[in-house]
Amino acid sequence: AVCQVIGMYDYTAQNDDELAFNKGQIINVLNKEDPDWWKGEVNGQVGLFPSNYVKLTT
């Protein structure tokens, strides 16, 4: 993983390639090539999510 982030809001996947997560959930970021849509993993599920829905862990 590149880094870990925390969901600031609940996110519901809109497409099959997206990653759903809940507020407060830890997401392992796998790829930040696109500044707006990062690739991440939660509980074995991998997908894209909007980078503005998360904050970096300290």
Score class of each variant (00 low, 15 high):
Glu41Phe: 00
Phe49Pro: 02
Ala13Leu: 01
Gln45Phe: 08
Trp38Glu: 03
Ala20Pro: 12
Val5Ser: 02
Leu56Asn: 12
Met8Leu: 15
Ile6Met: 12
Asn52Ala: 11
Glu33Ser: 12
Thr58Leu: 11
Tyr53Ala: 14
Tyr11Asp: 00
Lys55Asn: 07
Phe49Met: 04
Glu41Gln: 01
Glu18Phe: 07
Asp16Leu: 09
Asn31Tyr: 06
Ala20Ser: 13
Thr12Trp: 05
Ala1Ile: 15
Val54Phe: 02
Asn52Gly: 10
Tyr11Asn: 00
Glu33Trp: 00
Gln14Asn: 09
Gly24Gln: 08
Gln4Tyr: 07
Ala13Thr: 09
Val2Asn: 11
Tyr9Val: 15
Ile27Asn: 03
Asp34Ile: 00
Glu33His: 08
Tyr53Gln: 11
Trp38Ile: 00
Lys55His: 08
Cys3Lys: 06
Asn43Trp: 00
Val2Asp: 12
Met8Trp: 09
Lys32Phe: 06
Asp10Leu: 04
Trp38Asp: 04
Gly24Arg: 01
Trp37Tyr: 13
Asn28Thr: 15
Asn15Met: 09
Glu41His: 07
Met8Ser: 10
Phe21Val: 14
Trp38Thr: 01
Ser51Trp: 01
Asp10Thr: 14
Leu19Ser: 02
Ala1Cys: 05
Asn15Thr: 14
Gly24Lys: 06
Tyr9Ile: 15
Tyr11Glu: 02
Asp36Thr: 12
Phe49Asp: 07
Phe21His: 04
Met8Glu: 15
Phe49Val: 08
Ile27Ser: 01
Leu56Met: 12
Gly40Leu: 03
Asp16Trp: 04
Gly44Val: 03
Gly44Met: 01
Gln4Gly: 05
Glu18Tyr: 10
Gln14Trp: 04
Lys32Gln: 13
Ala1Thr: 11
Tyr53Trp: 10
Lys32Arg: 14
Phe21Thr: 00
Lys39Gly: 12
Gly44Phe: 02
Asp36Leu: 13
Val42Pro: 04
Gln45Tyr: 08
Trp37Met: 14
Gln14Thr: 10
Ile6Phe: 05
Gly40Cys: 02
Tyr11Trp: 00
Leu48Met: 12
Asp10Met: 14
Val42Lys: 08
Asn15Ile: 05
Val5Arg: 02
Val54Ala: 06
Gln4Phe: 04
Asp34Tyr: 00
Ala13Ser: 07
Ala13Pro: 13
Phe21Asp: 05
Ile26Gly: 01
Asn22Arg: 14
Lys32Met: 13
Leu56Ser: 14
Phe49Trp: 03
Trp37Ala: 06
Thr58Phe: 09
Asp10Cys: 07
Leu19Trp: 02
Cys3Tyr: 11
Trp37Ile: 13
Asn22Met: 14
Gly47Cys: 00
Val42Asn: 03
Pro50Leu: 01
Val46Ala: 07
Asn28His: 15
Glu41Tyr: 01
Asn28Glu: 11
Val42Gln: 05
Gly40Trp: 00
Phe49Thr: 01
Leu48Cys: 11
Asp17His: 09
Glu18Asn: 00
Glu33Ala: 11
Gln14Lys: 15
Asp34Lys: 11
Val29Arg: 01
Ile27Gly: 03
Gly47Leu: 01
Val29Tyr: 07
Thr12Gln: 09
Leu30Cys: 01
Asp34Gln: 07
Ser51Leu: 01
Thr12Asn: 14
Asn28Gln: 08
Val54His: 03
Gly44Ala: 06
Ala13Gln: 04
Thr12Ala: 13
Val46Asn: 04
Tyr9Asp: 15
Glu41Ile: 00
Ile27Glu: 02
Trp38Asn: 05
Phe21Gly: 03
Ala1Ser: 15
Ile27Gln: 00
Gln4Leu: 06
Leu48Pro: 01
Tyr53His: 10
Asn28Arg: 13
Gly24Glu: 01
Leu30Phe: 12
Asn22Glu: 15
Asp17Ile: 08
Val2Gln: 07
Asn43Asp: 13
Asp16His: 05
Val29Asn: 04
Ala20Cys: 11
Lys32Ile: 00
Gly47Thr: 00
Ala20Glu: 12
Cys3Met: 12
Ile26Trp: 07
Lys23Tyr: 05
Trp37His: 01
Asn22His: 12
Phe21Arg: 04
Asp10Glu: 07
Thr57Ala: 13
Gln14Cys: 06
Gln4Cys: 06
Lys32Glu: 06
Ile27Tyr: 06
Gln4Ile: 08
Asn43Lys: 08
Phe49Asn: 08
Gln45Asn: 15
Gly44Cys: 04
Val46Ile: 14
Asp16Arg: 10
Gly7Asp: 04
Gly40Val: 01
Cys3His: 04
Asp16Ile: 12
Asn22Gln: 15
Asn28Lys: 13
Phe21Asn: 01
Glu33Tyr: 05
Leu30Ser: 03
Asp10Gly: 06
Gly40Arg: 03
Val2Phe: 10
Val5Met: 04
Val46Cys: 07
Asn31His: 12
Leu56Ala: 14
Glu18Ile: 01
Gly7His: 07
Ile27His: 03
Gly24Tyr: 00
Ser51Asn: 07
Leu48Ala: 07
Val29Met: 01
Trp38Arg: 00
Trp38Leu: 04
Lys55Ser: 14
Tyr11Pro: 03
Lys55Phe: 05
Val2Tyr: 10
Gln14Val: 10
Tyr11Gly: 05
Val2Ala: 07
Pro50Tyr: 00
Leu30Thr: 07
Val42His: 10
Asn43Met: 06
Asn15Ala: 12
Tyr11Leu: 02
Phe49His: 06
Tyr11Ile: 06
Lys23His: 09
Tyr9Arg: 15
Gly7Ala: 15
Leu19Val: 10
Leu30Asp: 01
Ala13Phe: 06
Asp17Asn: 15
Gly40Glu: 03
Asn22Tyr: 08
Gly47Ala: 03
Tyr9Trp: 15
Tyr9Asn: 15
Val29Asp: 04
Ile26Val: 15
Thr57Lys: 13
Asp10Lys: 09
Trp37Pro: 00
Phe49Gly: 02
Thr57Gly: 12
Asn31Arg: 08
Asn28Pro: 00
Asp16Phe: 05
Asp17Phe: 09
Tyr53Lys: 14
Gly47Asn: 05
Asn31Trp: 10
Val54Gly: 02
Ser51Val: 11
Lys23Thr: 14
Asp36Met: 13
Asp36Gln: 11
Lys23Asp: 01
Ile27Ala: 03
